[in-house]
Amino acid sequence: MGTLIIVLTYIAYVLIVVVYTIKITAWLKMPPHIRWDLYPVIHEENYRYGGSYYEQPEWWTKPRPRNTWRSLFYSLKDNFYMGEYYKRNRTYWLCLLPWHLGFIFIITFHILCFFAAVAMFGGLDIAANAPHVAGRVFYTILLLTGGFAFVSGTFGSIGMPIIRLADRGLRTYSMPMNYFNYLFFLVVYGSGLLAWLLLDPTLDEYRAYWLGLITLTPPELHPMTVLHIILFDIFLIYLPFTRSTHYITRILAYFFIRWDDEPNLPGSELEKQIVGLLGRKVSWEGKHIPTGRSWAEAAMESGLPETKKDTP
């Protein structure tokens, strides 16, 4: 059993990193698109009321100060707060936020366990009554993170399907997979919650598990914890195949679509890219489009019916 969870865990982490990387790369590799910005643009000076650099006469002669840190903070903050839901659908938010915090905290918990295991390997004792203060602090943080993840995730996984079924709009747009996910995540969090409350109140076993992982020694664990860890590994493997990448792509969408207000100035790198894109061939079949010609050629001609022969 111990060997199984070590192998499974390694597979899970490799897979999640690889699939996430592939997905994010594919997102980023799409060509630059036409400007489609939407205000407020947070890096703008007058973001408070949604103002842009176009508010100044001859904007191209003026500096365009950008505050990227502000945008980054703004977009990251929402991963932990989900403000639009708080503002617009409070009941939904009450379940949605704990559900999401469950994800964040359970993954954080495991990452922290990894560091704890490294520290333990280096000789630090991590426990409620550890001799060194660092060991006691580490212990408390781990306990709070793990405990919160289990409770919050369980609460969210029970609440989400209830809310979805109760709200007319959400019900219509729910698919069987949503309910399967809620159930599966409930089992993951619930098994963790039970193992913690009933068998492992100090969450000691996770440190043992992670120590086993980094030293490649199969740990001796309670079957209940093993069950939870196997479920958690399956969860990790499943995660990249769901829409979970939205944690990252939503931020990309903010930066590269909604807030992308980079003007195309003569001689810029952007202009070169656009020249390349304009050279691509189009295959649209509408009568006003010269099928098979380049984008630029299609745009330069008038497309008037009298200038184009009917194509069969």
Partner: peptide, 29 residues
Amino acid sequence: FSADDNWTFLQPLVHTLEYCVKCQICSDA
């Protein structure tokens, strides 16, 4: 979905299709 025919809007289109969770926040707006 072709980067030749629709480079102009490919990225925002794909993003919306892949990542909308149909949470209906937009309906009220």
